[in-house]
Computed example of a mutant assay.
Amino acid sequence: MTNKMTQALEKFGSGSYLPSDVTVLLDIVVKDAVADVPVSQKEVLIQSGQRHYSDMLTLEQAPTAKHEQLYQQALEQGADRTASDIANLAYTLHDIFNEAIDDKQPLVLVSLVRAGLPIGVSLQRALTDTSSAYRLPSVHYGISIIRDRGLDTVALQMILSAYPNSPIVFVDGWTGKGAIYQELARSLELFNDMNHANFANIFHRGENVIPLLTLADPAGVAWLAASIDDWLIPSGLLNSTVSGLISRTLYTEPQLGLHRSVFYDNLVSIDHSLAFIDHIDAARQQLPTPPQRLPTFKQPRYQTAALIDELATYYRIDNRNRIKPTIAEATRAILRRDPERILLASADHQDTVLLRHLCKERDIAISVLGAKILPYQAITLIKQRMTES
């Protein structure tokens, strides 16, 4: 039965990654089947409650030459740190799971599409590196999670059916406020019962412990993270062109199938997805220092919750979804949403060069607040748009 189930999963693609890197459990639809909604109109629909953000898409455009240049600079600047973080995460997973798994029941990495994909693929490369000290039998899947609507339960059940005796670790790129952690926890409540058939697959670290792994965890909610810093993660500066050419996911009712996504075939010529993975993998193999065991946490600490509350009060923001903290999330919000202002900890930090460039390009106000917003280096505040201007 398991062989048939794993074979059934093989029909799904891997975006622009290699099939050995990841299997993305999404229903890929053509761009023409998706309404291309302008950002200003989308904001009105979202904030007025007429439409959920996961019901519509603003089709992605190619980054500008300046954006591409700043991504390349970020990659050169952050490649060694990313590689070291991946090695430390892989080493820690090996230390935790080495005695519990084998080739027949591998560790299952489940990346949360999209920000989790580059991290999950890099981690899968590290775990399958036979020359490393942390080689571990593992398989890697990408599935959708959507705020307010949860994890794609159809995709998750497909994985559980294919690997009934394997532990699952969920992978994301970073945490902002901890909203995706909370969404994940809500989606997994059904399994958080020791009598559930799949309890051990998900709650292998104990009851109520959500096995979420991230590269950076400023919000303090991850079970395992390489650091709690808000830093310039290179893969956070681009959208689909560093995430397998896959769009942000669109919601589908469970009875109708998998969550949907668009594959941006028009951006193939400027895709960095595989180049990013290869670059980080090469850097990882040349690291001069041995990997380190990272700490794990059974419960979230929510170390920035009070700060988010203070910002919401000061800027009179009722909906916390309009607050987008971390360099990566602040940058993506400028590219995909309608920002009102950007908050920075420093006026000239090297990690916010792209952010400041985009603000100048779009005439977006910047407020430098210093240590008041730490540990975040940047936060985007989305404009309140109940009616279109």
Rank of each mutant, 00 (worst) to 15 (best):
A185N: 10
L267M: 11
V22K: 02
T153D: 14
T82M: 15
R135E: 15
L109V: 01
I342C: 00
K4S: 14
Q61N: 10
I180P: 07
R320D: 08
P63R: 07
Q350V: 13
M158N: 07
A365H: 07
L311N: 04
P164V: 01
S144V: 08
L156D: 01
A74K: 09
A222L: 06
H140E: 06
H204R: 09
W223E: 12
M56V: 03
E361P: 00
E253T: 13
R81V: 02
L374H: 10
Q292T: 13
E340I: 05
A162P: 02
K177S: 12
Y181F: 14
A83R: 03
Y251C: 00
L250V: 05
I86R: 04
R205Y: 13
L25K: 07
T128K: 15
I86K: 09
L70K: 02
S346N: 11
R322F: 10
A74C: 10
T153K: 15
V262Y: 00
D102Q: 03
S40Q: 12
V268P: 08
G236E: 02
L335C: 10
R356V: 04
E189K: 11
F297H: 15
S84V: 09
A365D: 06
A365K: 09
R332G: 04
V37I: 12
Y17V: 01
N88T: 01
R356S: 00
N201G: 05
E183D: 12
Y17W: 08
Q255M: 15
N192K: 02
G15L: 05
Q285D: 06
D230N: 00
L190G: 07
K372R: 14
I168W: 00
K383N: 11
A378Q: 04
P19E: 01
D103M: 12
A371I: 07
L224R: 10
L274M: 15
Q72E: 14
G370D: 01
L287D: 03
Q69T: 15
S166D: 09
T6K: 15
L18C: 04
R125A: 08
M386C: 12
Y315A: 04
I228W: 09
R301D: 13
A33S: 14
S16F: 10
H204P: 00
S111F: 01
K66Q: 13
E68K: 14
I342Q: 01
Q50P: 03
A179C: 11
F170Y: 07
Y251A: 10
L344E: 00
P38A: 01
P254S: 02
P295V: 05
S84N: 13
R337Y: 12
G236M: 00
E68A: 13
I145S: 10
V44W: 09
R341I: 11
H349F: 03
S54C: 02
G49M: 02
V169N: 06
A275P: 00
G206S: 05
F12D: 00
T249Y: 01
V110P: 03
E253C: 11
L70W: 07
R385Y: 00
E76I: 10
K383L: 09
V368D: 03
T326C: 07
R301S: 14
R336N: 05
L224C: 10
V139A: 14
Y17N: 03
E99F: 07
E43N: 10
K324W: 09
H357P: 01
S367L: 12
Y53M: 13
Y251P: 02
S20N: 11
L250M: 08
I327F: 04
Q105C: 12
T331Q: 05
L188W: 03
P325C: 08
L59R: 12
G244F: 06
I317S: 05
